[in-house]
């Protein structure tokens, strides 16, 4: 049995690679996301071509639909009790569609301490597995909670 370590600043290493689970985009994922962020754009939901009025042949999904798949990559290697997202940069390369079989590939490119807090920076690419097409790429910075569990900022 593989034993996962709890994520910490000391344990993670620059250059470490991550990979998400593979994921097939389903209509209910788009529905759930649309409700969560209250975005019901016809480009994502309308079956009728005229009603949709989109340059795309068929429906696409929210460009940021797969953000959490990228964030959860580290859960495949570590126990992650909590963390806070500090920054993100995303480039949207190609539209995401229902039925695509996707996976996120990531690499830890930096880790640093600032004002007593620990941060890790991960570069990522979300790709369609069948074709290798990059859909979204970028990097994100996360703050890792200390073993004690509480940062001062949380008390604001």
């Amino acid at each position: 049995m593989i034993e996962f370590k709890t994520i910490s600043y000391e344990v993670v290493q620059i250059g470490e690679e991550f990979r998400s689970d593979d994921f097939t985009v389903k209509p209910e994922d788009v529905d759930t996301f649309g409700y969560a962020v209250d975005d019901h754009d016809p480009w994502y939901f309308e079956d009728d071509d005229n009603e949709r009025d989109s340059p795309y042949d068929g429906k696409i999904t929210h460009p940021v639909l797969l953000g959490n798949l990228a964030l959860f990559m580290r859960h495949n290697k570590y126990i992650v009790p909590a963390g806070l997202h500090a920054k993100i940069h995303c480039e949207f390369v190609a539209p995401i569609r229902v039925g695509m079989h996707v996976r996120v590939y990531g690499k830890l490119i930096d880790k640093y301490e600032r004002r007593g807090r620990h941060y890790i920076v991960t570069r990522f690419e979300t790709r369609e597995e069948d074709t290798g097409q990059v859909l979204v790429r970028g990097n994100f910075t996360q703050m890792i909670f200390p073993q004690s569990g509480v940062h001062q900022h949380a008390k604001r």
Partner: peptide, 13 residues
């Protein structure tokens, strides 16, 4: 489509 293909977001929380 000018955002869906070629758009970018940079954000600090």
């Amino acid at each position: 489509a000018g955002f869906v293909q070629g758009g970018q977001i940079s954000a600090s929380f």
